[in-house]
């Protein structure tokens, strides 16, 4: 338990101390909300889809958690570069605990970041359907955060340097974001796209968040929870396996 706690705490300290990073990572949701949200809002409304900010906000929360989690997982690459990884690997600790501590720490920072975005969304005019829905929304945030931190960790175990990172960003992370329905409704898409959106784990996160915050879920929140929980477990398992194999 101490092991998990101490590594969790380390991630948190690193997060709180990197204020530039916190601010920088809020730029993107701000841009989408204010630029996209207000620019695109009237069109969206005319198309009969209702208030765009209301639609967009859960997507932005999902997006922020996606990026923050993936990055905190990939931070493992920095640990490798700056050498701290070796310190962890020679410690008399099961690798599984090290991995869990790191992942929970990264996920916690992503949830913080998501919470800040909720506040920003509310300032931009977003109104959750009811306050009682917030615990449910929180559950989705936790699952999405854990899932993608574990994915980021797995990626970092496989990559050995930062060069592969651009590729992962372009061919994995951005598609996950765009295909999740964070920006547009997933209706009336061509079949191929439809399938891709269904494979994308973030789709269920965004759908669940919309269900909890707006009362409009496509798949049903129970189903979303189940899918996310399942994938999160699988990713944790894969991440732990990869982490137990890395050599210094």
């Amino acid at each position: 338990m101490t092991t998990i706690y101490i590594l969790w705490l380390r991630q948190l300290k690193r997060y709180i101390r990197s204020k530039p990073r916190i601010i920088a990572s809020l730029g993107q949701p701000l841009l989408y909300l204010f630029g996209f949200g207000f620019g695109f809002g009237p069109v969206f409304q005319k198309a009969g889809q209702g208030n765009y900010i209301q639609f967009l906000a859960p997507g932005m929360i999902g997006m922020t958690i996606l990026f923050t989690s993936i990055f905190s997982g990939i931070e493992l690459l920095f640990d490798r570069q700056f050498g701290f990884l070796k310190e962890m690997l020679v410690a008399p600790q099961p690798r599984l605990l090290l991995m869990i501590g790191r992942t929970l720490g990264g996920a916690t920072t992503a949830i913080f970041q998501g919470t800040i975005v909720i506040v920003i969304c509310v300032i931009a005019g977003f109104r959750p359907a009811s306050l009682s829905a917030l615990p449910m929304a929180f559950a989705f945030m936790v699952l999405v955060a854990i899932l993608f931190t574990a994915l980021g960790t797995t990626i970092a175990c496989v990559l050995t340097d930062m060069q592969g990172f651009q590729m992962i960003m372009g061919f994995l992370i951005m598609p996950i974001f765009f295909l999740s329905g964070a920006l547009f409704p997933l209706k009336g898409l061509p079949t191929a796209m439809q399938i891709l959106t269904r494979i994308d784990p973030l789709t269920y996160g965004v759908d669940g968040l919309r269900g909890a915050m707006n009362g409009t879920s496509n798949f049903g929140m129970g189903f979303d929870l189940l899918v996310l929980g399942g994938i999160a477990l699988v990713f944790m398992a894969i991440g732990a396996r990869q982490f137990s194999r890395i050599e210094a």
Binding site: K13, F82, G83, L85, K86, E87
Partner: peptide, 8 residues
């Protein structure tokens, strides 16, 4: 090679 956590 170095192995400290610089941020801590």
């Amino acid at each position: 090679d170095p192995s400290l956590d610089d941020e801590l």
